[in-house]
Amino acid sequence: MGFKLLSKLLVYLTASIMAIASPLAFSVDSSGEYPTVSEIPVGEVRLYQIADGVWSHIATQSFDGAVYPSNGLIVRDGDELLLIDTAWGAKNTAALLAEIEKQIGLPVTRAVSTHFHDDRVGGVDVLRAAGVATYASPSTRRLAEVEGNEIPTHSLEGLSSSGDAVRFGPVELFYPGAAHSTDNLIVYVPSASVLYGGCAIYELSRTSAGNVADADLAEWPTSIERIQQHYPEAQFVIPGHGLPGGLDLLKHTTNVVKAHTNRSVVE
């Protein structure tokens, strides 16, 4: 069995187990497998329904001669939608809004960016022009300005110390501490036991640490421990890039980060 097929099978099995364990909360999309990078042309966006009122959005972007996937989250909030992270750029984010209108038909009224990198804030200006209120932590807003990236308009308070959590509509926002970046936030959907790890969490097929220019490698494993301790009931975990899975993604990420750190020390 090929690795790609095995990865998709694991996603399907995880979703099936969740649907059985929580039949009222989960209505997993039966329309197909989780979209992969090879299936999404740059400039297009796919939506994948995880649970009743919960979707991931998947886009792709060219970077350094390669094409990478990027995940975000959409959560229903009454007759409105909360968006977590842009679709990595203005063109993708405009396509995301169009796809949401086509498939869901509810307005996106608020959006949260989970850290300051372009795959999370690139497209904020498109959201703002569409009347979406954009939010991020003060740290993310400051770092985005320093980096020359787009800056969300509103500040999220109460997320300055490791372990801080605040309720934001249908989700809980959690600051686990520094990891992929010093400002990275985690998003949890309690009604569906869905954990969105953003770039602080890796997919299972990833074996290298990737972009760690703004990471705190020493603190990252401790931050992941905080996530595990705060959300032990999480059933569906979405990484910032690639295929979702279960809580095993947290341990896998820790292993990859520690291996990278150990290699760096040896070198």
Rank of each mutant, 00 (worst) to 15 (best):
T153W: 03
S16H: 01
Q103Y: 03
K251M: 05
M18V: 10
W220Q: 03
G197I: 12
L106Q: 03
I40A: 05
D164W: 06
R141S: 11
L10A: 10
N255L: 13
P23H: 13
A234E: 11
H252A: 08
A133H: 14
D29I: 11
G240L: 01
G53R: 07
S162C: 07
T109P: 11
I224G: 09
D77F: 13
E145N: 13
K102P: 15
I17Q: 02
G53W: 09
N211F: 13
T253E: 01
G122V: 07
L173Y: 01
A213G: 09
L217I: 04
W88Q: 04
V124P: 01
G123M: 01
G72S: 09
K251A: 06
L250A: 08
T36W: 05
R46L: 09
I74R: 01
T134F: 05
G65I: 14
N71E: 02
T261W: 10
N262F: 14
G240N: 02
I201K: 01
L73M: 15
D216V: 10
L249I: 06
V112E: 01
R167K: 04
D248W: 08
A136V: 10
K8Q: 03
S155A: 09
N149P: 14
S62M: 14
L9R: 08
D79T: 10
W55G: 01
E147D: 11
E33G: 08
L204H: 14
V257K: 02
V171H: 00
R120F: 00
Y68C: 05
I238K: 02
K8G: 07
S162D: 05
G53A: 11
T254Y: 06
I58F: 14
G242W: 02
V132Q: 02
P239E: 01
A98V: 04
D216G: 08
F168D: 03
L185I: 07
N71D: 06
V124I: 15
L83A: 07
T60R: 08
A25V: 06
N184T: 11
L127Q: 02
G72Q: 02
Y188F: 12
V37K: 07
S7R: 10
P138F: 12
S31T: 15
M1N: 14
L143R: 12
T182Y: 08
V189L: 06
I17T: 04
Y12H: 03
E147V: 13
P107T: 13
T253N: 00
L249K: 02
S205V: 10
S70M: 13
S208I: 12
N211K: 09
G78T: 13
D164V: 05
L195F: 11
D29W: 06
H115I: 00
G198R: 00
L97H: 02
Y188A: 13
R263Q: 14
L243T: 13
A66T: 12
A111L: 03
N71C: 03
T134Q: 03
G131L: 14
I186C: 12
P190S: 09
I224C: 07
T207N: 15
H241E: 00
V132I: 15
S70N: 06
S205P: 09
E33V: 09
E101A: 13
V265R: 08
Y34S: 12
D216Y: 09
I104Q: 14
V108T: 04
V112S: 01
L127Y: 02
R128H: 13
S208C: 02
D85N: 08
S193D: 13
H57K: 01
P107W: 06
G122D: 13
T261P: 15
A144K: 13
